[in-house]
Simulated assay, not measured.
Amino acid sequence: MTATHHTERRTGWTATGWAVLFWLTAGLGAVAGFLTWLFLYLASDVDNRSTADDFSNPHEGAVTLGLPVVVGAHLLGLLLLLMAARVARHDRRSAVRFALVALVATSLVGLAGLLALTGGDLLVPYPQPFRP
C-alpha cells in the first residue's frame, strides 16, 4: 500500500481524480443553480406581461411554468452529484451527505447571485413600479 493510497483511504476519498470530479460537478452546479433561479425570475416576468392585459392572478404562470423547471433541475443536479459522490467516496452514507450538502450549497449560491442581480427580488414585482 502506497502513502497516497493510505491517505486517500483515511480521508474517505477513493482517489484524487474522483474527488476533483465531484468538486468540479459541484462547482458547475452553482452555475446551473443560478441559471435555474434566473429561469424562475424570467418566467415570472413573462407571466406579469400577460397578466397586465387580463388582470388575472400575478405569478400564477411563474409557479406553473418556472417551479417545475426549478424542481426538475434540482433533481437532476442531485442525481449527478450522487453519481459523482458515489465513485469519489468510500462510504455510501458519506457520499449521500456530500451530495446533499453540495446541492443545497450550490443552490443557495445560485440564489444569492440572482438576488444580487435583481435587487433582492425572487420574482418580478407586480405591478411594475412606475419609471418615468
Rank of each mutant, 00 (worst) to 15 (best):
V31F: 12
V31K: 02
A32C: 10
F34T: 07
W37R: 09
L38D: 08
F39K: 02
F39Q: 04
Y41L: 07
L42T: 06
L42C: 00
A43G: 07
S44L: 06
D45I: 06
D45H: 09
V46L: 14
D47R: 01
N48C: 15
R49D: 13
R49G: 03
R49F: 04
S50P: 00
S50Y: 00
S50R: 12
T51H: 03
A52M: 13
D53K: 11
D53E: 08
D53Q: 11
D54V: 14
D54E: 06
D54G: 02
D54I: 10
F55V: 11
N57Q: 13
P58S: 06
P58L: 09
H59P: 04
H59T: 07
E60D: 12
E60T: 12
G61P: 15
V63I: 13
T64F: 12
L65T: 08
G66Y: 00
P68F: 00
P68Q: 04
P68S: 05
V69W: 02
V69G: 01
V70K: 00
V70H: 02
G72S: 09
L76K: 01
L76M: 14
L76W: 09
L76C: 09
G77P: 10
G77S: 13
G77R: 10
L78H: 04
L78D: 06
L79R: 09
L79C: 06
L79S: 07
L80P: 08
L80A: 14
L81I: 10
L81S: 10
L82I: 13
M83Y: 06
M83W: 10
A84T: 10
A85T: 08
R86K: 14
V87P: 02
R89T: 05
R89A: 12
H90I: 14
D91R: 04
D91L: 08
D91A: 12
R92Q: 11
R92E: 12
R92Y: 05
R92G: 05
R93W: 13
S94C: 07
S94D: 12
A95V: 08
A95K: 06
V96H: 01
V96L: 15
V96Q: 00
V96Y: 02
R97Q: 12
F98I: 04
F98D: 15
A99W: 02
A99S: 11
A99G: 08
A99Q: 08
L100E: 03
V101N: 00
V101M: 11
A102C: 10
A102Y: 01
A102P: 09
L103I: 08
V104P: 01
A105M: 11
T106H: 02
T106V: 12
S107N: 05
S107H: 03
L108H: 01
V109C: 03
L111H: 03
A112G: 10
A112T: 13
G113Q: 02
L114T: 05
L114E: 07
